[in-house]
Design a protein around this nucleic acid. Sequence first.
DNA 1: CGGCCTCTCAACACGGTGTTGACTCTCTCG
DNA 2: CGAGAGAGTCAACACCGTGTTGAGAGGCCG
Lengths: 210, 210
Amino acid sequence: MAQRGRRTARVSGDERQDAILITAEALIGERAFDDISIEELATGAGISRPTFYFYFSSKDDVLLALLDRVITEVEHRVGDLPRDFASDPVGAWTRSIGMFVEVFVAHRGVATAAIAARARNDEVRALWSKSMQSWVDFSSDVIRSEQARGAAPEGIDAHDLAVSLNLMNERVITAVLNQESPAIAESGALDVLSTIWIRSIYGSVNPGRR
Amino acid sequence: MAQRGRRTARVSGDERQDAILITAEALIGERAFDDISIEELATGAGISRPTFYFYFSSKDDVLLALLDRVITEVEHRVGDLPRDFASDPVGAWTRSIGMFVEVFVAHRGVATAAIAARARNDEVRALWSKSMQSWVDFSSDVIRSEQARGAAPEGIDAHDLAVSLNLMNERVITAVLNQESPAIAESGALDVLSTIWIRSIYGSVNPGRR
DNA sequence: CGGCCTCTCAACACGGTGTTGACTCTCTCG
DNA sequence: CGAGAGAGTCAACACCGTGTTGAGAGGCCG
């Protein structure tokens, strides 16, 4: 939120700022963020390179602004997520994971760029963490309440489980979208992920001995 | 394998090449790969920057050489992994995952650098994939055989499951090692990961209806 | 109108990468 | 043993991308 980008601002020039963001989002969709120069962003927005610095302090700052929007959307959507897990756990989890996938796909470019940038940029890392945290909080709350009502077995820390499963989602979806190898087919992803979530949240299996 | 780095080579100068690799491995442990300049690698190896180019064609080429070693180790260790899953599935899986964790921790710097570099460098991506593929092949083989002997339920594709779980391991361990947030405690990681693997491989749960 | 604040950019400084061309060893073969 | 072919080395250069500086143009407000 608030004051990402521009320094003091008040009247016009907002359009320029937007133009940079729009250019960035467009380019990010077709090319790696690292391969986009500030020159290109500036030209795309109809300004010179030094002028770019009037609006943003760096290329990463642009990414941050883009990420901000995504975070806002994530927090909205997570907040609106239904919590009717008692009546239809499988469906409810699948819908939640489906929403995670949707957000990722919708902001594919920003997500990919942010994941790459978080290794070197603290602010990007913090912001990304914040959005992952929304999902983790949501899932660990639900897991805990499923454990409390006896539907899911205790014996595993709800938070750790939620973190691991959400990180799995992040990684698997990234692999699918980037057509990595090894990866899985996009069509089957939601299914596999849901199954893993369900089994590891509700299952208490002791194969063989132990 | 073979012929990474140096162009034709035959006699001496090998030491120089090693010196670069050693310097790289040392620096990579204390600083992000991106923040290391070729100048530093050269100086560390006692040569000038242009001379560096005699041995490697780029900084990424050095990383590739480092990765090559890791791949070799991974393939060895995966090959040596016991397959006594019938008698003690939980223990066997935990040991396998433990080995994955060990390799990651042992080559922490290279792993982190490779993960960051794979986004921009095709060769790094290919090499990393190769090592992940070793784990995936191993795990999907075992899952398939566990399904065949009736210990694990069918109804989920062994390959997709193996890919997802291995990507989860990669991501969770990275998060732990980099002290990201959200992440989990290093001490509990193996436990949580094993539990998720076991439950999703052997469990067939239908909570509520379906 | 006069001054301030927003906005703009040419020109510069810098740091990193990769290349060139000339030079020095050292080993080998006639 | 003397000539030539590598192997190995590096000063100097060409580039490109980033970020800064300083000087100005235009509008809005008293």
